[in-house]
Design a protein around this nucleic acid. Structure first.
Lengths: 193, 193
DNA sequence: TTTTTCCCTTAACCTACATTATTGGTTCCC
DNA sequence: GGGAACCAATAATGTAGGTTAAGGGAAAAA
């Protein structure tokens, strides 16, 4: 059932009546993405909240030298989106694409705004979601400011053990903020840790 | 009036009845901090939401070499706190102290949890607050991954023009992620920009 | 199968920024 | 007034990680 993962995710923080659940579920549309297909590009306005059902997405920026910097991976059960663009409804600077064929669910911002009015406990749900994400980004910023590359890599392995197995090294390098060449050198000089 | 700034801040996103406002306001206690005084140290559990009324605070971590990394400055009208510790009620790893004599308002988490129940629109307020902060941290992470130090400095000046005037260079260096020496060299080689 | 694309590795060289140390100028406190 | 902090500036030296380039292997595409 396509909505199973989503409902589980919601149920972690709020409880819905049958009616509320029905209204909530009818706001979603599902979509398939092919590997390498874009969901969002620089300059686009983010009009939807996105929940990942299957596959694997990533969100990243491209700097003026053409290098990608990955902000987030999104395996099944995760939310992903350019929050600044979503809030302001202005063009954003981020890219989102699929690393594998993926299934996602989309809800338009206008529907979400209605949902907040009809089912206010979603204010709570997304407050908790945002607060958790905020904590995660704060920690990541600290790590980037204070840890050498090898420890950022170790943290990544500890935090996302399942991702490390299915991601090409190159993507991990882009997430922890080093070049693929340097990560390769680092790991070969490591043997066992 | 001590609560003026706070009520203004709230009014940007939600509207309160007289009763709601009264209940909200009675949850706060005010506190003075002397320059250099700690509000939070590594290992403490963050038990309060904090709103700054006057002065200037900063939140930072200290790495294992003893170097400080500033996550956030908080001038009047800003919120500050170790969100991970606040959510989990576990000991955190951050420090908060006052860069100048400051006035703050504190609300205990237990009161805030009650507030959410009595006045659900605060779920909305703090959702919006967290979402905005999330966007800011995402952008800062991108900047740290993709911009050279001089541009991170320029961004800081553009974003916080009033702070740049009252902060010692050393604090700015710690925020943008370079040593004070390097920032000094960078600025002397700059002349006009 | 052949071709192309993607990815990992290695290695020589390079640079942005760190480290350490010294100096001199403020401001603050006794 | 005289230390004691604190802060900015400068300079010599060090290093983590970047850049460029080349080769090989595996997987995707044709």
């Amino acid at each position: 059932m396509e909505y199973g993962l989503l409902l589980q995710n919601i149920a972690k923080h709020i409880r819905l009546s049958a009616d509320e659940e029905k209204y909530f579920l009818s706001g979603w549309q599902s979509k398939k993405l092919r590997r390498k297909q874009f969901l969002l590009q620089e300059g686009d306005v983010t009009k939807n909240a996105v929940f990942v059902v299957s596959g694997l997405l990533r969100m990243y920026s491209i700097d003026k030298n053409g290098f990608e910097h990955i902000l987030q991976f999104a395996p099944p059960g995760w939310w992903i989106g350019d929050i600044k663009s979503f809030i302001s409804q202005q063009p954003g600077s981020l890219y989102i694409d699929a690393l594998e064929d993926s299934g996602i669910l989309l809800m338009e911002k206008t529907y979400l705004d209605q949902l907040y009015k009809k089912v206010p406990s979603f204010e709570r749900f997304f407050r908790i979601l945002a607060e958790n994400a905020l904590g995660t980004y704060q920690q990541r910023l600290i790590d980037n400011l204070s840890l050498p590359a090898i420890e950022r890599y170790n943290n990544f392995c500890r935090l996302y053990p399942s991702l490390i197995e299915c991601l090409p090294q190159k993507q991990v390098a882009s997430y922890i903020g080093v070049t693929p060449e340097f990560l390769s050198k680092m790991l070969s000089g490591k043997q066992t840790s």
